[in-house]
């Protein structure tokens, strides 16, 4: 079933409608390659989150097929599918009644891992996201800063070592300094882990910095897929506003020097 050379995720003629009419995603065709970080870029309301939810089957396509490891998400056992995919969202969605350690340990625990293995994995994965275990493991989410919460969210998504990672504007709510720090660490992490990542952002600089490729979305449709260089060379009218915004930002930065 799983062709290791094939794409990790594939959208084939995917439509998603609400109540059978209002269309949120129309005719989406997209392949995410194994080990790449694909950035879903688009303005607010363009359908990025909906696209992400179609991958872990929080939503099922109205038409067409979303394939994970070559198999339609509707054919997967949905629990197996979701545990095969790490999910990290804005504001992290941490369980407020669980400590950091308990948050991170939950999926391995549900997967029936040995306690010793869980405990060493929790340590490892917290280390990986830059949170010393002894300092953070028994804190509750409300005893963490926004950046720390986001790190725990990432650690939790990585805990059971899923090959695929979905990240929905994970750094969107952070202050610029913390955001830059986490972006940097994400790059380092991705160099080492080589997960298949689908990363949602509305920030063009973030997309250029973190992604192998950028999938540009607008009004529920894919406008094109670009590498960083292709993105800048593109004469596509959908791309232009982003390049303008990016250059305006650089101008401002230069002016500030």
């Amino acid at each position: 079933m799983s062709d290791p050379s094939g794409p990790a995720i594939e959208f084939v003629n995917v439509h998603y409608r609400i109540d059978g009419k209002h269309s949120l995603i129309s005719n989406l065709n997209l392949s995410v390659l194994r080990g790449e970080a694909l950035m879903l870029l688009g303005r607010s309301g363009s359908g990025k989150t909906t696209t992400l939810k179609l991958i872990n089957r929080l939503l099922a396509p109205s038409e067409g097929e979303v394939r994970v490891d070559g198999r339609s998400t509707t054919e997967w056992d949905v629990i197996r599918l979701r545990r095969h995919i790490g999910y990290s969202i804005q504001e992290a969605g941490l369980f407020p009644h669980y400590t950091v350690q308990e948050n991170v340990a939950l999926v391995p625990k549900l997967e029936g891992w040995e306690p010793a293995r869980i405990s060493s994995r929790v340590q490892e994965v917290l280390q990986l996201v830059g949170l010393p275990f002894h300092q953070f493991s028994s804190r509750y989410p409300d005893q963490l800063s926004g950046g720390q919460r986001q790190r725990v969210g990432l650690a939790r998504a990585l805990a059971a070592d899923p090959p695929i990672l979905l990240m929905d504007e994970p750094f969107g709510a952070l202050d610029p300094m913390t955001r830059a720090e986490l972006q940097h660490e994400f790059m380092e992490l991705q160099k080492r882990l080589r997960k298949t990542v689908v990363f949602v952002t509305h920030d063009v600089a973030e997309a250029l910095m973190l992604g192998n490729r950028i999938a540009l979305m607008d009004s529920g449709a894919l406008k094109g897929i670009f590498t960083g260089a292709e993105f800048f060379r593109s004469s596509d009218t959908a791309v232009k506003p982003y390049i303008d915004a990016f250059q305006a930002m650089q101008q401002t930065l230069k002016a500030g020097d």
């Binding site: 939810k53 872990n56 929080l58 949905v78 629990i79 197996r80 599918l81 979701r82 545990r83 999910y87 969202i89 804005q90 504001e91 992290a92 969605g93 941490l94 369980f95 407020p96 939950l106 999926v107 549900l110 969210g153 939790r156 998504a157 979905l166």
Partner: peptide, 14 residues
């Protein structure tokens, strides 16, 4: 909180 529930479902809780 909806994000908390959504994270839980997305992580594969039955």
């Amino acid at each position: 909180d909806p994000p908390v529930r959504e994270a839980a479902v997305g992580m594969g809780l039955t």
